[in-house]
């Protein structure tokens, strides 16, 4: 019944279908240039573009063909470097992993910088507070044995599985800049820092879990999490961020009692 067969070509193709896959899409971009105006403004760009292209391709088209002054970050353009996190239609996503057809192109698509971090120009923000929180949780292997290791540090597949989810983080800041607690004063460690602490706290080879837990026991540590799940929704790698935060909370509590 469901055998795939070639479509008979005797029916005429629908008009307009064969000639072009392009549709007209409006991109409403939040522009900001501190050297010209103190306030950010919205600017509309109309593009003829294939809806199966990504938002990043549209931004490239704008920058290369319409307005060379549009500023945004992107490096690998394939969802690994984490440079092009931005707020598309009000949700934090990677522009290079978002297809235009998935963000309702019949309406204007809004593109703006991620929230909670200082905008430097257009879609570029100052990531320093984000990386400071990341550095604060000591995201590197720490062992009590200070000698140079003579062989590989082995661990079982189950031990590796324990923190597998949080190894996927690409530090794009989509989670931290979607967190309402972070938006307030930026002092909260933020989901990304906690995810990267989780990656080492639950690593059987690491021996500084206690120190990291102590850091996250801070006033602006895990206890400021309100479990709004914005971070889990925003993560382009599908990390269960809120779950990781909850596991750190549980580790803090069970460690004491």
């Amino acid at each position: 019944m469901a055998t795939p067969v070639m479509e008979k070509s005797d029916q005429a193709p629908e008009p307009g279908f064969a000639d072009s896959p392009y549709i007209t899409v409006t991109f409403r971009v939040r522009r900001f240039n501190p050297e010209v105006a103190a306030e950010a403004t919205w600017e509309d760009f109309q593009l003829e573009i294939d809806p199966k292209e990504r938002v990043l391709d549209a931004l490239h088209k704008i920058k290369w063909e319409l307005d060379g002054s549009l500023t945004f970050r992107r490096s690998c353009a394939h969802g690994i470097c984490g440079s092009d996190a931005m707020r598309i239609n009000g949700k934090n996503r990677l522009a290079c992993k978002t297809l235009i057809k998935d963000v309702s192109p019949e309406k204007p698509i809004t593109v703006e910088a991620i929230k909670g971090l200082t905008v430097l120009k257009d879609l570029v923000v100052d990531m320093e507070p984000f990386f400071q929180a990341y550095r604060d949780v000591m995201p590197f292997l720490i062992t009590k044995d200070t000698n140079e290791p003579t062989r590989e540090r082995l661990q079982t597949a189950e031990d590796r599985e324990r923190f597998d989810d949080t190894t996927k983080c690409i530090l794009c800041a989509a989670c931290t800049s979607s967190c309402p607690v972070f938006w307030n004063d930026g002092q909260y460690f933020g989901p990304a820092a906690i995810v990267n602490a989780h990656r080492f706290i639950f690593d059987s080879r690491d021996e500084a879990g206690e120190q990291r837990l102590e850091i996250l026991n801070d006033r602006d540590g895990v206890w400021r999490c309100r479990t709004t799940f914005n971070c889990t929704d925003a993560c382009p790698r599908g990390i269960e961020v809120t779950k990781a935060i909850a596991e750190v909370k549980r580790a803090l509590i069970t460690r004491r009692f």
Binding site: R31, V36, D67, S69
Partner: peptide, 8 residues
Amino acid sequence: GIGPVEGA
């Protein structure tokens, strides 16, 4: 190729 936001 320079939009109104950029200006001088």
